[in-house]
């Protein structure tokens, strides 16, 4: 199971606990981990499923490459960090 951690800046607006979820891509893990909480999902991606312009996702320490479809491959022990960019504040 991959692990999703959220920036405390997001937790200020919406409860976002540490989540463990399965999936082969960042999109699949986020979808599984946030199933049932569309409002939380809306803080990370827009209605088209694209990563918000001023949100970054690090996968095992590296910024993800695909911001449109979040198709970066995830391993079974991967760690996903969701955090706000320095831009957009």
């Amino acid at each position: 199971m991959a692990t999703i951690r959220f920036t405390s800046h997001l937790v200020r607006h919406r409860p976002a606990p540490l989540i463990e979820a399965a999936g082969g891509t960042v999109a699949e893990v986020l979808s599984a981990g946030m199933a049932g909480d569309d409002l939380l999902r809306g803080y990370i991606v827009d209605e088209q499923g694209r990563l918000r312009k001023h949100v970054n996702i690090y996968l095992d320490g590296t910024l993800i490459a695909d911001r449109l479809r979040l198709s970066d491959k995830v391993g079974p022990k991967s760690e996903i960090y969701v955090l706000q960019a320095l831009s957009g504040g």
Binding site: L10, Y43, H54, V55
Partner: peptide, 8 residues
């Protein structure tokens, strides 16, 4: 209109 997290 959150700068990072979109319109709410």
């Amino acid at each position: 209109s959150h700068g990072h997290f979109g319109c709410k």
